[in-house]
Structure formats: C-alpha cells, structure tokens
Simulated assay, not measured.
Amino acid sequence: MQRLVSAENKPIAIALAFILVILLIGTGYTLSTTGTAPLLSPNYLLQQLQIGAFLGICAAGIMMVILLGHIDLSIPWTLTAAAMTATAIGGDLAVPTALAVGVAVGLVNGIGVAWLRIPSMIFTLGVDTVLRGLMVAQTGGFAPQDTATPLMVFLAKERLLGIPAAIFVWAAVSLAIVVILTRTGFGRAIYATGSREAAAYLSGIRTRWVIVGAFVVSGVCAAIAGILLAGYSAKAYQGMGNVYLLPAIAAVVLGGTHILGGRGRYVGTLIGVILIVLLNSVLSIMQMPEAGRQIIYGGVIIAMLLVYGRNQRVLS
C-alpha cells in the first residue's frame, strides 16, 4: 500500500520540485539584473494566479474527460463561443447564456462519444470546427463590437479582501471538482469507467451517462473560463481560447493523471497549472525570444513526462 501511495504522489512531487527550480532560477535572474525579487512578491504571485485561473478552470474540466480515457479538443471554441455569445446577449442573461452554451456543447460531445461511439479526439475536434464556423458566421468574420458586462469584468478583474475575484471563482470550481471526484457516486463511476468501461458497465454503472456528464462538466468549465477571459479583456474575440488547449492538457498530464484514464488526483492538476503559469512568467521576465520560450517550455514538459513515464512502466 505504501509503495502504491508513493507511486501516486511521485508526479506531484516532481511537479513541485520543478516549481521550486523555476522560482529559484527566476529569483536569481531578477536579483542579478534588477536587484529585486518580484517572483516572491505576494502581489505578483496573486497576479499570476489571477491569470492562471483561466487555464486552471479549463484544466479542471478537461481532467474529468481524461480520467475516462477520452479527450476534449473542443475547449478552444467552446470557451470562445460562450464568451462571444455572452457579450452579444449582455445584461443579466449574459452569464447564464454562456453556461448554457457550455452545457449544450458538452451534451453534443457526450452523445457523440457515448452513443455514436465516435472517437472523442475526432468528434470533439469536429465540434470545435463547427463552433468556429458558427462564430465566424455570427460576426461576419470581423471582431465583435460587444463588450463584457459589469459582472463579467468584476469576476475577472476586481478584488475581494485584496484577492482577485477570479481566484475565488477558480477555488469554487476546484472545490466542486474535488467533491465530485471524492464524495459522489458520479466521481467513483468516472474512475471505474476510466479504468475499464466494460467492467464498469457489467457492474451496473450507466457508463454512457457518466461519459456525457464528464463532457458536460468540461463544457461548463470552458464556458466559465470564457466568461472570465472576456471580463479580463473587457470583450470577446475570435480565437481567444486557442492558447489554452495544449497547456490545459499538459497541466493535467504533468499533474499525474493517466492519459488513458482511471488514475489521477485534482491536486496534481492544480500543481501542474501553477507550474505552467510560473514557467511562462519566468520566461517572460527573462525576455526570452519566442523560439527559445517554446523550446524550453516543451523541454520541461518532455522531461517531466519522461520521468513520469518511467514511473508508469514500473507500475505496469
């Protein structure tokens, strides 16, 4: 049992070690160049967490799908469609409309994967393309002129008790995911279905509805991220979600969630998000050229996955 627990915690420990190394390198660089250490400033860390909330909420949703051994590639335009629809509707209906878009996309994805048995990678990519076409048709190919509502701006940019409201939203989403995965029958069914769907079905679990539910959660999380991102930017724009797909998947995998499903803890995803946010922040402070940033960013991910992959082979 002790060996199993250590193996489960190993990816999390590795991610924490990488975070420490990133902080040390970034602090050493800023001390040598400016004589200050902004990375250790509470205000700076809160700002990075505020920006990381968008990625963290996307990662929370996509983790639910990855735990089933599936993938949701419709995240970018689910986020964008929710944000653009919310700003177009405006008023008190903006946020509920965005959430409804997330639910609708999740239902379509879940039905396509669970009932039609189309591979999730192909089906969700197709849904993402359809959403992109719908949004281009809605705006005529031009940037929308709508602006975010005051509530959206408040949730993304304002502070409560000195802490950005976006962090509270991220915390609420995180708490909901943890409760679902650890305290509900739905969460246990996700792990069972991800481990072996046929066995879960034979044991009485409604695996198709479990898959639909996970995709709905992923869609809603993408919509929430879209609400916040539109509020942070004060408007919605085409392609605003494109930069979040791969980092969200990377955060989930780096946090120890098995890409084939059945194993993973949300705390690992949380740490994976913080790692990616801090890495991007340090590279920005160092004014690393885009080419160098991509090389280092990819290298860190590959290095962690290699170490984690060795751990998985030992387990198997």
Score class of each variant (00 low, 15 high):
residue 1 M to G: 07
residue 1 M to D: 03
residue 1 M to T: 09
residue 6 S to H: 09
residue 6 S to C: 03
residue 7 A to Y: 07
residue 9 N to R: 05
residue 13 A to R: 09
residue 20 L to P: 00
residue 22 I to N: 10
residue 28 G to N: 08
residue 33 T to K: 13
residue 35 G to A: 05
residue 37 A to P: 09
residue 39 L to I: 01
residue 40 L to Q: 02
residue 43 N to I: 10
residue 49 L to G: 12
residue 56 G to M: 11
residue 56 G to A: 13
residue 57 I to W: 03
residue 57 I to N: 00
residue 59 A to V: 10
residue 62 I to V: 15
residue 65 V to Q: 02
residue 74 S to K: 03
residue 74 S to M: 03
residue 75 I to Q: 09
residue 79 L to W: 00
residue 82 A to M: 05
residue 88 A to S: 14
residue 96 P to N: 00
residue 96 P to V: 06
residue 97 T to C: 14
residue 104 A to Y: 05
residue 113 V to H: 00
residue 114 A to I: 01
residue 114 A to Q: 02
residue 119 P to L: 00
residue 121 M to L: 15
residue 123 F to M: 06
residue 124 T to M: 00
residue 124 T to F: 04
residue 136 V to E: 07
residue 138 Q to Y: 14
residue 153 V to W: 11
residue 157 K to W: 00
residue 168 F to P: 08
residue 171 A to Q: 08
residue 176 A to E: 07
residue 178 V to D: 11
residue 178 V to H: 11
residue 190 I to T: 09
residue 190 I to R: 04
residue 196 R to S: 11
residue 201 Y to S: 14
residue 204 G to C: 07
residue 207 T to M: 04
residue 209 W to L: 13
residue 212 V to T: 03
residue 213 G to L: 01
residue 221 C to E: 00
residue 223 A to S: 04
residue 225 A to G: 04
residue 230 A to Q: 06
residue 237 Y to K: 06
residue 248 A to R: 07
residue 251 A to S: 13
residue 253 V to H: 05
residue 267 V to F: 05
residue 269 T to D: 08
residue 273 V to H: 05
residue 277 V to P: 08
residue 279 L to E: 12
residue 285 I to D: 09
residue 287 Q to I: 09
residue 295 I to H: 07
residue 304 M to S: 10
residue 305 L to E: 07
residue 311 N to S: 13
residue 312 Q to C: 02
residue 315 L to N: 09
residue 315 L to R: 14
